[in-house]
């Protein structure tokens, strides 16, 4: 099995996204190192509109790589607060630093209980292993 960085402090989804609760009650969202490696060179990220109200699991954007295109899903329900507009110019940030400069969007969760249903790093690592 290949090596993936999976920071302990993050929450994960089965759709290969991560979520980091911020102090102001919002949550930053991106795709995982595993997803980034699977996709290969990212060439375009389609972002939702800030203000969009999403249901957990709803498709809200897309990540296009040279090989393929993957949908972006809302990891929890809530409103999109802001998006990483820098990705329009530098989509490669998703490959270079998927947990930092390659973040995708921030949302304000409306159902905090959903956060408890997300995976921790160990459970997500197991989810990857099951697929490999």
């Amino acid at each position: 099995m290949a090596e993936y960085q999976l920071p302990e402090t993050l929450r994960y989804t089965r759709e290969d996204e991560w979520l980091r609760p911020a102090e102001d009650g919002s949550a930053v969202v991106g795709i995982t190192d595993y997803a980034q490696q699977q996709l290969g060179d990212v060439v375009f990220v389609e972002l939702p509109e800030p203000g969009a109200v999403l249901q957990q699991g709803e498709a809200c954007g897309a990540i296009e790589s040279v090989k393929t295109v993957a949908e972006l899903f809302a990891p929890v329900s809530g409103e999109v607060a802001r998006c990483n507009q820098e990705l329009a110019q530098r989509p490669e940030a998703v490959n270079e630093d998927c947990y930092g400069g390659g973040w995708i969007l921030a949302m304000v969760p409306s159902q905090p209980a959903e956060l408890d249903g997300l995976l921790d790093a160990a459970a997500y690592a197991q989810h990857i292993a099951d697929r490999e």
């Binding site: 060179d41 060439v43 375009f44 040279v66 989509p91 490669e92």
Partner: peptide, 8 residues
Amino acid sequence: LDETRAAR
């Protein structure tokens, strides 16, 4: 060919 650069 550099398909990544062509796409970006």
